[in-house]
Simulated scan of single mutants.
Amino acid sequence: MSDSEKSGQTRQYITFMANGQEYASDIMAIREIRGWTDTTPLPHVPHYVRGVINLRGNVLPVVDLRARLGLGMTEATAKHVIIVVHDGARTTGMLVDAVSDIITLASSDVQPPPDVMDTGDDSGIEGIAILDGRMVTLLTTSSLSAGLAA
């Protein structure tokens, strides 16, 4: 936990849906939100990598969030979106069902994941927030692209 989180400062998150559940990532890591674009598949990549797209002349790997979290593959349609995230080391696209909202959370709003969850270094789960009666799973963007070549 960073010093700012320990002191109770707030952070903003973008919330999005995948497999009927609400997730969120730090707004500072989000570069853009774009409509679904068919990907070019690549050989020898993890099962959750849909392929790559051309993002203004750059090759962008696209991760299927549902598959990355072990929830099955997404049947992508024109209603799905790709959230472009940058974690400092790489830029990755994240296929999600829809973008929902921007929320502000204090560190006191975030609870650690339950003990029954596999929360190893590459789990991607930062914590869980209860907001207006709904549970939002907070994801770390660096962990979501774990396993991709730098």
Results as ranks from 00 to 15, higher is better:
Met1Ile: 04
Met1Phe: 04
Glu5Asp: 11
Ser7Val: 11
Thr10Cys: 06
Gln12Asn: 15
Tyr13Pro: 07
Phe16Leu: 13
Met17Tyr: 07
Ala24Ser: 08
Ser25Ile: 14
Ala29Asn: 09
Gly35Cys: 06
Thr40Leu: 05
Leu42Met: 11
Pro46Gly: 07
Ile53Ser: 04
Asn54Leu: 07
Gly57Tyr: 07
Gly57Leu: 05
Leu60Phe: 10
Pro61Tyr: 03
Val62Ala: 06
Val63Thr: 14
Val63Gly: 05
Leu65Arg: 10
Leu65Asn: 09
Arg66Glu: 10
Arg68Asp: 10
Gly72Cys: 04
Ala76Ser: 13
Lys79His: 11
Val81Ser: 05
Val81Thr: 06
Val85Gly: 00
Gly88Val: 05
Ala89Lys: 14
Thr91Phe: 01
Thr92Lys: 00
Thr92Tyr: 00
Ser100Trp: 00
Ile102Thr: 10
Thr104Val: 03
Thr104Tyr: 01
Ala106Lys: 09
Ser107Trp: 05
Ser107Gln: 09
Asp109Trp: 03
Gln111His: 15
Pro112Gln: 10
Pro113Gln: 09
Pro114Gln: 04
Pro114Asp: 03
Val116Pro: 00
Asp118Ile: 04
Asp118Trp: 01
Thr119Trp: 01
Asp121Asn: 11
Ser123Glu: 02
Asp132Asn: 14
Arg134Gln: 14
Val136Phe: 01
Thr137Cys: 08
Leu138Val: 07
Ser143Val: 02
Ala149Asp: 14
Ala149Met: 10
Ala150Met: 08
Ala150Ile: 07
